[in-house]
């Protein structure tokens, strides 16, 4: 849960960096505009979350999934974001799987080492 009110704002520096990337070089962003974009981004998160939550609730799920978010994008008429998000989701899943595989591999290795260590002790 949020403890301070500032915890519900996104860091201004990060938001400003994304704004700068979207604009051609040399365009300055007024301080007021930066604050407004950051605030808009927070509201967007809540707007998207509640739309995705409604979709999850409709199919009797308590946990909001990635697919719910993509479907919510359609509901809130940000269709142009669906393709890049779909791609990002696949990348994310692939990376998660790699991570999982890597950690199980690590565990297996550790187990092997332990086993060989035991054998050494026996000898």
């Amino acid at each position: 849960m949020a403890e301070k009110l500032e915890d519900l704002n996104l860091p201004n520096a990060v938001v400003t960096r994304i704004v700068r990337e979207a604009l051609p070089d040399g365009v300055t962003v007024a301080k007021e505009a930066r604050a407004a974009v950051a605030k808009a981004a927070s509201i967007f998160i809540l707007y998207l979350t509640s739309s995705a939550n409604i979709i999850a609730k409709k199919s009797n799920r308590k946990t909001v999934s990635g697919q719910d978010v993509i479907q919510a994008m359609e509901d809130i008429e940000f269709d142009q974001f669906i393709a890049p998000l779909q791609e990002a989701l696949e990348n994310f899943k692939k990376n998660q799987k790699e991570k999982k595989d890597a950690s199980t591999k690590k565990k297996q290795q550790k187990k092997d080492e332990d086993d060989s260590g035991e054998i050494h002790e026996d000898e």
């Binding site: 604009l23 974009v37 808009a40 981004a41 998207l48 999934s65 990635g66 994008m73 890049p84 994310f92």
Partner: peptide, 18 residues
């Protein structure tokens, strides 16, 4: 994956709005 996508979507949104 939902958390990741919301963060990603917000970045796209900030980009779009600017």
């Amino acid at each position: 994956d939902c958390l990741f996508l919301v963060a990603k979507a917000t970045e796209l949104f900030v980009h779009y709005l600017s």
